[in-house]
Design a protein around this nucleic acid. Sequence first.
DNA 1: ATGATATATTTAGTCCGCTAAATATATACG
DNA 2: CGTATATATTTAGCGGACTAAATATATCAT
Lengths: 141, 141
Amino acid sequence: MADTVDCDIRQSLDRISSRMRRDYSESLRELNLYVGQDNLLSRLWSGDGITQMQLCEHLKCEPPTVTNMVKSLEQNQFIYRKRDEHDARIMRIFLTDKGKALEEPVAVKWKRQQEKLLDSILPEERLLLRRLLKQMESNLL
Amino acid sequence: MADTVDCDIRQSLDRISSRMRRDYSESLRELNLYVGQDNLLSRLWSGDGITQMQLCEHLKCEPPTVTNMVKSLEQNQFIYRKRDEHDARIMRIFLTDKGKALEEPVAVKWKRQQEKLLDSILPEERLLLRRLLKQMESNLL
DNA sequence: ATGATATATTTAGTCCGCTAAATATATACG
DNA sequence: CGTATATATTTAGCGGACTAAATATATCAT
């Protein structure tokens, strides 16, 4: 009984997540972005010049993942890299004007998808939902 | 205000999903499986001899994805493929004994992760959570 | 019966994740 | 000073997802 419900929750989460990722990915292609890159840029929009390690922490992914994403974003001239003056191991990442210009269109797409996801879910329900999700997040740590 | 909550929900879902995928993936490596393959096998445990197209539908992914997963699973001798007698375009997928033997250990791992995820969330909350997730799922269609 | 269309699968190539191992630089300790 | 260790990044290679295009077979309509 409870098992069926629990199982549905786990699978439901998977389905929502992969479906969202897929839709969002498709939508971002119009901006010449791949899914995941928007999250990296998002961190830069709130302040650039940070290191790849800092990006790792924010994206909760491993260094090689960041290396590849950064490489791709650099090739498309959304960002550029500069070696740190005091520590030659470190690469600092900066937005180009082209990269800065993406902030608004990405926000629009993000918001649109968010609204689609939460359609017809009431504010109180959203609060409760968030609480339960936070609980699950901390359960996984 | 509402925006912050909504945004958290979307990001929370992403974090839970990727974290779960990561942990589960690691746990499956003990069985020589990769994440995603368990889902394919799961469909076969409830009846094998189905086509790759049917697997696509169940996994909600594209044909090339199934081709690759099937190839990998075949190389590890968890499944085997047989061309359909009446329609030579079709490949039918069957479990080997080695593949059948994975059902229980996978179920154990799945259950363990599920319990971790839902720890300290009450039965009523789980029911509500499921309802909201179902709602979000249908919103995305 | 033949040519056009539809279906099932594969191939090639991309990005996002990962791990393991290599590289380069910095720092700490004897 | 020099060696050992720690840190930041890259390289190589793999699986899961995708798209676009190729292949093979089946079916449908003329």
